[in-house]
Simulated assay, not measured.
Amino acid sequence: MADYIKIRPVDGTWVVRAGGAVIGETKSALELTEGSYSAVIYVPRDDMAMAFLEKSETTSSCPHKGTATYYSIIAKSGAIQDAAWSYEAPLEGVADIKGHLAFYPSKVAVEEV
């Protein structure tokens, strides 16, 4: 799996914006690359305004990472359904993403500033 999934810290400051508001900022982001998929930035939960995120009932399973739990973002304009996901008990080879969130780029902006 080390050749299929790679996780590395990324430099810089990363901001998470949703519904017109900044809901997170970190200097501790991780980048996960998996096969031919686009890289995904994972942000530590400790650097997120978790009061704006609500766990949904949606889950999915990945044979390489484990079971993902989804979160909706509660914005002034309304809920952004299943905008984020987290592997709360990731498989051994990807344990670094535990305690982190990733976001769908069609719903949330994750940008280096």
Rank of each mutant, 00 (worst) to 15 (best):
61 S>L: 00
58 T>M: 12
46 D>E: 15
34 E>I: 14
34 E>L: 08
47 D>Q: 01
69 T>R: 13
42 Y>R: 10
47 D>Y: 02
57 E>L: 12
72 S>D: 05
40 V>I: 15
64 H>Y: 15
72 S>V: 07
63 P>S: 03
53 L>Q: 09
34 E>W: 13
71 Y>R: 03
38 S>N: 15
56 S>I: 08
45 R>C: 12
69 T>H: 10
53 L>I: 04
73 I>K: 09
58 T>Y: 04
59 T>Y: 07
55 K>F: 09
45 R>V: 01
39 A>H: 13
41 I>N: 06
37 Y>A: 15
34 E>M: 09
65 K>A: 01
70 Y>Q: 00
66 G>W: 03
50 M>N: 00
72 S>Q: 09
61 S>Q: 09
73 I>L: 06
74 I>K: 15
41 I>D: 09
43 V>D: 00
37 Y>H: 15
43 V>F: 04
40 V>S: 11
46 D>A: 15
48 M>D: 04
63 P>E: 08
44 P>N: 10
56 S>A: 09
65 K>Q: 01
47 D>V: 10
53 L>C: 10
68 A>F: 03
68 A>I: 08
38 S>W: 13
60 S>I: 06
55 K>W: 07
65 K>N: 08
74 I>L: 08
73 I>V: 11
41 I>Y: 14
59 T>D: 06
59 T>R: 11
35 G>H: 10
43 V>G: 02
73 I>F: 06
63 P>G: 00
58 T>P: 03
50 M>D: 00
51 A>K: 14
59 T>K: 07
59 T>A: 01
59 T>Q: 11
55 K>I: 09
47 D>K: 10
48 M>Y: 02
51 A>V: 09
41 I>R: 11
40 V>C: 12
51 A>Q: 14
37 Y>C: 06
66 G>Y: 01
71 Y>G: 04
64 H>I: 08
67 T>N: 12
46 D>K: 09
45 R>H: 01
60 S>K: 01
42 Y>I: 08
52 F>V: 05
72 S>H: 12
57 E>M: 10
71 Y>P: 07
40 V>G: 05
73 I>S: 03
61 S>E: 07
58 T>L: 12
73 I>D: 04
51 A>P: 03
69 T>V: 15
73 I>T: 02
71 Y>D: 05
34 E>F: 12
60 S>G: 05
48 M>H: 00
60 S>P: 05
38 S>M: 14
66 G>I: 07
43 V>A: 05
50 M>T: 03
70 Y>W: 01
54 E>Y: 03
67 T>L: 13
56 S>C: 12
73 I>M: 03
44 P>W: 03
44 P>S: 01
60 S>D: 01
37 Y>W: 14
61 S>A: 06
67 T>C: 11
35 G>M: 05
61 S>V: 12
53 L>E: 02
43 V>S: 04
52 F>P: 02
37 Y>G: 08
41 I>T: 15
66 G>N: 05
60 S>Q: 03
40 V>W: 00
55 K>N: 04
57 E>Q: 05
36 S>A: 14
37 Y>I: 10
46 D>Q: 12
70 Y>T: 01
57 E>F: 10
55 K>C: 03
73 I>R: 03
39 A>N: 13
35 G>L: 02
68 A>M: 06
54 E>V: 13
72 S>Y: 07
67 T>V: 15
48 M>S: 02
73 I>H: 01
39 A>K: 15
42 Y>T: 10
45 R>A: 05
50 M>Y: 02
62 C>Q: 02
39 A>D: 13
71 Y>F: 14
62 C>A: 06
49 A>M: 13
34 E>H: 13
